[in-house]
């Protein structure tokens, strides 16, 4: 079966004189190089220019707040169970009186960490979440110099109240309307 139509049958015939001279082949090669020299580059010089992502791109996570600005996560642990890379850990805590504006329900995640070196960005955590708290966004996990800085805590994951992260840009997550 042919996968592509580009395969050629190799023959071990004697080279003709023009093939032995190499020069026509070299000229053809130079032509191909020059053609690519003037073609549009396939690469981007990354920090200055960013590639446009596909709408389904799954990047750095965000822990969403609700409309009142309270954290939606209830530390049920379903995301950590769903995670095939075992990148998510959390410690649950009980909401105290007077913290209603911070946490939406009685239980919340005191500590919520994702190890970005383990994460494979599969999006299963976002599918598992019953509270629509965790989403993968179109942002990039930045490069760091130390391994421990790749463990993102709540300071990096929870969206700031004044800078909400728009997750609708990514389109609807699979399995939801």
């Amino acid at each position: 079966m042919l996968l592509t139509n580009r395969s050629k049958v190799v023959s071990k015939k004697e080279m003709t004189l023009s093939e032995k001279l190499y020069l026509p082949a070299i000229a053809t090669g130079l032509g191909i190089t020059l053609k690519h020299f003037f073609q549009k580059k396939a690469t981007f010089s990354y920090p200055e220019v960013q590639r446009e992502f596909a709408p389904v791109f799954r990047g750095r996570h965000v822990l969403k707040r609700d409309d009142q600005g309270a954290e939606r996560c209830t530390a049920c642990g379903l995301c950590a169970v769903a995670c095939p890379a075992e990148a998510i850990t959390m410690i649950a805590a009980e909401r105290k009186r007077g913290e209603e504006h911070l946490y939406r329900e009685e239980k919340y995640a005191e500590k919520y960490e994702i190890n970005m070196l383990r994460c494979i960005f599969c999006g299963l955590c976002e599918e598992a979440c019953p509270k629509e708290a965790i989403f993968l966004t179109d942002r990039i996990t930045t490069a760091e110099y130390h391994r421990d800085t790749f463990i993102y805590g709540k300071d990096k994951l929870v969206e700031p109240i004044d800078q909400r992260v728009d997750v609708s840009l990514r389109g609807k997550p699979s399995g939801r309307d």
Partner: peptide
């Protein structure tokens, strides 16, 4: 000099 580089990219 460009030709030197050109060959370098090619052969």
């Amino acid at each position: 000099i460009f030709f030197f580089m050109w060959i370098r990219w090619t052969i």
